[in-house]
Amino acid sequence: MNPTLLKIVVILVILLVVLNVSALLIWLERRLLALWQDRYGPNRVGPFGLLQVVADMIKIFFKEDWIPPFADKWVFVFAPAIIMITVLLTFAVIPFTPLFQITETNIALLFFLGMSSLGVYSIVLAAWASNNKYSLLGGMRAASQMLSYEVFMGLSMMGTVMLAGSFSLRRIVEAQQHIWFVIPQFLGFVLFLIAGIAETRRLPFDLPEAESELVAGFHSEYSGMKFGMFFVGEYLGVVLISALISVLFFGGWLGPVLPPVVWIVLKTLFFICFFILLRAAMPRPRFDQLMSWGWKWLLPLSLANLAITGAVVLARGR
């Protein structure tokens, strides 16, 4: 087949699968949260309540798409698009299988870091354009939280980069033929997981949203499909971080017996469920606790991890 055509097919398949999965996550999250809270969750619409997503979508499309008169209109409209764009662009470098990867580049991880930094703009701009004090507080929290957690997010991945000797995600997966990086890089995995939760603004790090204090934080003023884009963007972020964790630390598509696609899907799904479990079990920390934890513990720990990994790699003379 024509390689360009093949690429387009791969792009379309990944786009469709990722968007549908993140929409289905709304259902999955509600069912799993209910499961862990001794309830049933949505189980009325369709088999197992699966069509609940469709019902939600129909509802959200028919909602009034309201822009407050005091808002900065163009930024207000553009902000939700940024988060979708940045997260979807990041999926371009994720190697789902050797075949299902949109683009293979030797700076994949840097690309991911850059895109996730750009994603913060979505939230800060949304909060600023809303012209609302609660939104502004949420945006302020988002900015400082992302800033401090992104620092050691980058550092926590560097251990795997050193072991694999490349920023390319495919090379990182291929370097895990013998041993998953979660074993030599356990600390890096834990740090990346924490930073990833903060990056997707999921509980327990959902302080920018913090519905019990800030109405709905940065998207207080959003309604209709613009709110829906923040909503789906958050789930896209969960899928992205879960896929990245399985690629970086759990050997991506590598695994016995089953085909590669099944392995990457299983691993990603496991971490998605873990994200939901965190939401079911964890309370939200205070903001100063969050910041001091990030700077005083997680950053030094990731620096130590980096130094030790570097020393070991040097000593082994690779």
Partner: peptide
């Protein structure tokens, strides 16, 4: 305590449901 509470919440999977359908 975080790991413990995660585990305990996970175990709730096997509890009976309280919902009256």
């Amino acid at each position: 305590s975080i790991i413990r509470s995660l585990w305990l919440v996970l175990l709730h999977m096997f509890w009976p449901r309280f919902t009256v359908q």
